[in-house]
């Protein structure tokens, strides 16, 4: 555990909590892509199956449980509790265009051809592109609420911090996981356009961030 890994995890946790609280407090999931949230729930479920097979640390287990719990709670709020506020017409990204290629890639390129390992790889690849329905939705409506941009910033920052964590681990531990690094790079690059807008349009008078 190094400082980049820890701040990355906390940034990830902050993103998840921000989104959950935003929906809960405003009693609305307007502007939030339910499809992205379902993909994140799938990501956590397929990645954290090792909860059943191996114990790494109390920190590891509790964070996994929190991530999974929050992911399903978010999906529940969007599709059940506040379903009336869900903007399904603008959430029109075709997720099969992500899930099918990512599934194929996970079967082809993995560390070990076993079910658990393929599902782990699938989750890593899927996570890297799972935000696309959300970004697509924002570009379609042309705007995002400020709190939604904070969510996206924390979520993007988390994988960027993980990149620094992997550089650290390579130098100090000789640890190298090319699948995670490659997917992490893709994931971070997808946020770059958003990062730029978030920083340049930031400020006290900001109400909304427009995406091209």
């Amino acid at each position: 555990m190094n400082v980049f890994r820890l701040t990355g995890d906390l940034s990830h946790l902050a993103a998840i909590i921000i989104l959950l609280l935003k929906i809960w407090k405003s009693r609305s999931c307007a502007g939030i892509s339910g499809k992205s949230q379902i993909l994140f729930a799938v990501v956590f479920t397929t990645r954290y199956l090792d909860l059943l097979t191996s114990f790494i640390s109390l920190y590891n287990t509790s964070m996994k449980l929190i991530y999974i719990g929050c992911a399903y709670a978010t999906v529940y709020l969007i599709y059940v509790k506040f379903r009336a506020t869900y903007d399904g017409n603008h959430d029109s990204f075709r997720v099969e265009f992500l899930v099918v290629p990512v599934g194929g890639l996970a079967v082809l390129i993995n560390h070990n051809f076993s079910l658990m390992e393929i599902l782990w790889t699938f989750s890593i690849y899927l996570e890297s592109v799972a935000i696309l329905p959300q970004l697509f939705m924002i570009s379609k409506t042309g705007e995002a609420e400020t709190i939604t941009t904070h969510y996206l910033f924390c979520l993007g920052l988390y994988r960027a911090l993980y990149l620094l964590n992997w550089i650290w681990r390579y130098y100090f531990e000789g640890f190298l996981d090319m699948i995670a690094i490659f997917a992490g790079l893709v994931q971070t690059v997808l946020y770059c356009d958003f990062f730029y807008l978030y920083v340049t349009k930031g400020g006290k008078d900001r109400k909304k961030v427009m995406l091209p």
Partner: peptide
Amino acid sequence: KADEAPHDEL
């Protein structure tokens, strides 16, 4: 090596 160790990251 990554393919032998459990995945200790989130």
